[in-house]
């Protein structure tokens, strides 16, 4: 029983990083209605920037964190300008494939800068743990959870309490009508994209600090985990993104404990598939709108 609860705690902690990744994804997808496959690789670029500063200049955790977030946001802006802003309505699939092409580009750029397979990344709080009775919680995990909940709340408040949030929700509701009431849609989209990539950067920094290493493969990992958590939680829902992430984390930890590491991912995918088939809207989402990235729809 202690194991079960300890696993659940660990799952929630790990899941909070998935939730953070899903949060950025959700903002991009919610506003654009398009899939940014380069989301993870943009974060990876931020991670590399942080590592370079750490290796070459001995930067501390705060500077590294700032560099990861900034690097992710800049890479995100690059992706938005190239793959999303120039695409006409109805070219959602072109945006998606284009963002995939840029993924390849970013991955190779990272390898050119740092050619080895892995590089060290500075830890946040090395191995320190807190004890609650029979349970243990790592401090860096706890920071991750706090950041996830805090950022989710910040996103929610921004969406529902600010002028910028009003603009974003108007765009989500009806892009043409948003233009008609005088919202600068392109600028709002670019800002949302940059902010979402920055949120991803926070997630990236925390995960990398826990792993204490960075590889080019981190991009794919971040895209996949964010995507899965977002789909489980429900497309376009901020609370859904976080809860989806936590649930994914818990499922993974328990699967690994009871069935071994290979079953961890297998069971996560089985759950995802089951969710999509039985309840495509996820935990918090509405029924799927059919033309999200279907290629032919205008």
């Amino acid at each position: 029983m202690v194991d079960f609860f300890q696993n659940t705690i660990d799952g929630v902690m790990i899941g909070s990083s998935y939730g953070l990744l899903a949060l950025g994804f959700t903002v991009i997808f919610g506003v654009m209605r398009r899939l940014n496959l380069s989301y993870g690789p943009s974060i990876m670029i931020g991670g590399y920037l942080g590592t370079v500063l750490y290796l070459n200049h001995g930067a501390g955790p705060l500077v590294v964190a700032g560099a990861v977030v900034l690097g992710a946001a800049i890479a995100g802006v690059y992706v938005e300008r190239l793959c999303f802003a120039p695409m006409k309505a109805g070219a959602g699939i072109a945006s998606m494939v284009s963002s995939f092409a840029i993924w390849m580009q970013l991955e190779q750029a990272a390898i050119l800068v740092l050619p080895r397979h892995t590089y060290p990344f500075p830890p946040l709080a090395t191995g320190a743990t807190l004890e609650f009775g029979p349970f243990f919680v790592r401090i860096d995990h706890l920071i991750m959870l706090v950041c996830a909940l805090g950022l989710a709340a910040a996103v929610q408040v921004t969406l529902y309490r600010t002028r910028f949030g009003l603009a974003l929700r108007a765009i989500i509701g009806h892009p043409v009508a948003a233009h008609l009431v005088g919202i600068n849609v392109r600028r709002a989209m670019l800002l949302a994209f940059a902010a979402a990539s920055a949120i991803g950067g926070v997630a990236g920094f925390l995960v990398l600090a826990v792993d204490q290493q960075v590889t080019p493969m981190f991009g794919m990992w971040a895209t996949l985990k964010g995507l899965i958590a977002m789909m489980i939680g429900g497309l376009g829902s901020v609370p859904g993104a976080v809860v989806g992430g936590l649930l994914l984390g818990v499922i993974e930890t328990h699967s690994q404990w009871y069935f071994g590491p290979q079953f961890r991912d297998l069971i996560a995918y089985v759950v995802l598939f089951a969710f999509l088939v039985a309840r495509p809207g996820g935990l918090f989402g509405r029924a799927p709108s059919p033309d999200i990235t279907t290629p032919q729809k205008a």
Partner: peptide, 20 residues
């Protein structure tokens, strides 16, 4: 009955299941 992104991710999940 899945479309767009939902179909894409469902096929991705299946393919990863097969790979594992």
């Amino acid at each position: 009955r899945l479309h767009g992104l939902y179909f894409a991710i469902a096929t991705l999940a299946f393919a990863e299941m097969v790979r594992i």
